[in-house]
Every structure is written in C-alpha cells, then in structure tokens.
Design a protein around this nucleic acid. Structure first.
Length: 206
DNA sequence: ATGTCGATTTGCT
DNA sequence: GCAAATCGACATA
C-alpha cells in the first residue's frame, strides 16, 4: 500500500453527519472539492484550509444560539449539503453543512490547491498565470470553481458540487490549527483554534 | 511591503 | 443605519 492509491470515492453521507464539527473540518483537509458547472469540464482542487462553526457556544457562527434566518436556514438541515452565502455583499462563501437536522454546524472551505480544469479556473478569475491568489481565500475558490448561491442547499454527493476522497492521507502532525479569520466580533469565541491548514502548503490563504 | 478604501446583501438595532 | 466568516485597486515607501 502506498499513498498514491487509485481510490476515487464520493464522500458518503455518513461523513457529514458526525457530531464533532472540528473533527470533520480536519478530515476535509486533503479531500477534493469538485464542480461541474453548465456542462463544462470538471474543475477541482485539494482542500488545504478549513474553519469549523457551531451553533452551540460559538458567537462567530451565523446560527449562533440556534437563531434561524433566511440566510442560515441550510445550516439547520441534515448534514451533507452546501451552505453558500454572500459576504460583504460581493463574495460567495462555501460551507459544508454537518451534523443532524436541528443541530446547525458547518465547515467553511477557505482555500484549495488547483487540480483539474485549471484553464477554466483561470478564465473565471481572469488570471493569465497560476498563482495562490487563484484559489487561496474563501471568496476566491468559489469564483474559480464556479460556486455561487444557486448551489445553496444542494447535496454534495453529485453534480454540480461534490467532494471526493482520492486516497490522500493528511497525518495529524501535518495539520496546523489557529484562530479563525475575520471573527473578532465574536469576543472570546474568536480565540477558538478552529481554523485548520495543511502545514506549509503554498495554497493556504493570507 | 504595508495601508486605506470601496463594493453592496443580509441581519440586527 | 451599520457591520459583516473578503478581495482587489490604488496609494505611499
């Protein structure tokens, strides 16, 4: 057995329905976020940066204290679907909803390393060169992969947006944790080390 | 290399 | 009205 195994599996629904959102955020590192939009070829990237959010005891979460709104409704549904929202009126941010219905938790995907469909991603971003700014950042990867609010609430086990395990294993010693970005308004909860990155990866944001 | 600022939907006061 | 799970343009150094 080596790390270059040929497995190529869509993450099963059970993966998303776990009750520990930080554990799922760690396990998403090294998985492949894939899209196929408007019959175009597949675009994909390796997830290299994630953040966990939880309704209970986390003021940084949109569903903090179980407050349900039109925007965060998807977070209250069964795990395994997309929660996409508009940030600062401009950027589409993509989250994976986890846990069971009524227990709003989600993982924000903050950066991917481009894998397939790089020419399409460059075109979507109006880039001539491939560099980290192409996909390093939560608003950047969604533009590169073609994800927007039309994907709100869609399940993640088939087109147009899904996540695959291709046998890449990230060991615990290769995962860094740090405070989440841009949540200073959350007081003490802003200090939670719920941002996870693949150590030393060039495609991590900031 | 670092700093400021505008874009502009959504939710809360 | 104001701030937000951000980014890129532009200024200054």
């Amino acid at each position: 057995m080596n790390s270059e195994s040929n497995i190529r599996t869509i993450l099963p629904i059970s993966f998303y329905r776990g009750t520990d959102v930080t554990d799922i955020a760690r396990k998403l590192l090294g998985k492949y976020l894939c899209t196929r939009i408007n019959q175009k070829p597949v675009t994909s990237g390796v997830i290299v940066e994630t953040e966990a959010y939880a309704a209970q005891g986390d003021k940084a979460c949109h569903a903090s204290d179980y407050n349900r709104t039109d925007r965060n409704d998807a977070m209250f549904r069964e795990g395994g679907i997309a929660y996409v929202y508009l940030c600062y009126g401009i950027h589409n941010l993509f989250n994976v909803v986890t846990n069971r219905s009524g227990e709003p938790e989600a993982v924000l995907i903050r950066a991917v390393e481009p894998e397939e469909g790089i020419e399409i991603m460059k075109k979507r971003r109006e880039y001539k060169e491939v560099k980290p700014e192409l996909t390093a950042g939560p608003g950047r990867l969604t533009e590169a992969l073609g994800i927007d609010r039309s994907h709100y609430g869609t399940n993640l086990q088939s087109e147009p947006v899904w996540i695959e395990d291709r046998g890449k294993h990230i060991s615990a010693s290769d995962i860094d944790s740090s405070p989440r970005i841009g949540v200073s308004y959350a007081g003490e909860d802003a200090k939670k080390p719920w941002r996870f990155t693949i150590s030393g990866n060039r495609w991590v944001s900031r």
